[in-house]
Design a protein around this nucleic acid. Sequence first.
RNA 1: GGCCCGUUGGUGAAGCGGUCAACACACCAGCCUUUCACGCUGGCAUUCAGGGGUUCGAAUCCCCUACGGGUCACCA
Length: 484
Amino acid sequence: MSVRMRFAPSPTGHLHIGGARTALFNYLFAKQQGGSYILRIEDTDLARNREDALQGIIDGFRWLGLDWDEGPEMGGDYGPYSCMERLELYQPFVEQLLAEGKAYKCYCSSEQLATEKEAAKAEGRLYRYPGTCRHLTEDERTYKEKAGADYTIRFAVPASDLLDFDDLIRGDVRFTTEDVEDFVIVKSDGIPTYHFAVTIDDHLMEITHVVRGEEHISNTPKQILLYRAFGWEEPRFGHLPLILNPNGKKLSKRDGSIIQFIDQYKELGYLPEAVINYLALLGWSPSDEHSEQELFTKEELIEQFSYERVNRSGAVFDPEKLAWVNAQYIKASDPQRIVELALPYLEKEYDRKLPLDWVTSLVTLYQTAIQAIHEIVDVSRIFFQDQVEYNEEAKKLLQEEHVSIVLQAVRANLAALGTDEYLAPQIKKAIRKVQKETGYRGKQLFLPVRVATTGESKGPDLNETLALLGQDTVLQRLEQALST
RNA sequence: GGCCCGUUGGUGAAGCGGUCAACACACCAGCCUUUCACGCUGGCAUUCAGGGGUUCGAAUCCCCUACGGGUCACCA
């Protein structure tokens, strides 16, 4: 039987790193096994569905390169691929359960249930739905029915029974039916709950492996109960460790401690292959002969991935390591690609078109210095300012005794260069000459020049910087510094 | 609180009964570059949450305790 796996998000918001990581760990295995990868939308919560969320998720998937074989925009033989389009498909299964006495109508209102819960809580008891409507007499039932009371449909959980499964990552996990109450499978608005829809969908779509976050581990017994009620073969289940924030807590949507949405990383200028690479390492590690490798192409990940090597404990998301991975990819990239990615940031910042060859030189200069593309803006400010701003530290440095001697000599030597000679190699020679003339070298020589022309005490290769700045600008800034 | 899952350095982790516990990020130091960054080299867990076992031998197997996390919805 061929492997079929799915990622089934609810369209409630942007694709976040936890979801993307789950999607990835499904994708890698499906691809490795030559199976199918399905994207399905779990949109049974009308109140929380958001119009643009699906598009956001699709965009995120496309950007990350997680191509799906079936699902939105792709179609497939097992469609449709969202619950709300599948509503009529669930109906017969609900009726079957009802007819077989494996499910029943529950007329308890949510207010009533809430009150019972409150009471239980006040008494320090833990509340579990007592099965009130399960034991209704025929009369009571018809009465409620006649009154037109709203109802949900609950699954009648059988008496004590072992509910265990062999988790792909954790091995044997066991619950008993005592642990689960008569849960709702159809809400009072007639829409199935997640538990119900997901198992019907997984079965109908012939999903072979259900891999999701650890928060679903305690939902698994409910789904197993459903598979058993229908006499269906269960898929393999697997539960991924949680991604934690720096405080060791599960990420919540509003957690401000880290950037957690995929589109935000895109906007900041992270490369999709870097995000994939980092996410893969969050919970998974390569085996022996690759144990020291940190950088993996998607193809390598597909080849090497295995659930046996997925960690069982939660992983703290480390933005610094992600940044490092991203920097590795930026450095290794074709400069042309980085230029194309960087150009929009610069043009937006300065609201004008910039000459491509000049930007190419600029970006190339900084390619090894940035960890994300957006940094190009901050780092290259000096090339866009009319005047250099000297901060206190710079001013102090420029006051040092030898500085004016150095700067005057530099100015003279650079001014002596013809316009067509004003290139990095010639500039280098000119500065070397200054060293001979003044006797100053190293830091004493370079720092004043850098500070005078850029206002910064650090930056990329000075000769290249001066060349790109242009002769007029450099001479003018040296002038400015000398008169400060 | 019940149930479930987990616990190797600040972080990601390797390790799967046998010399001094890989590697990477971060951090620190040095080298390189006539400057900064990049890069390179070195340092950074006498110890694997704690305590008991089992064993000639345990981070690795068993038990207990502690701690952390997840979940207990007409949300997914």
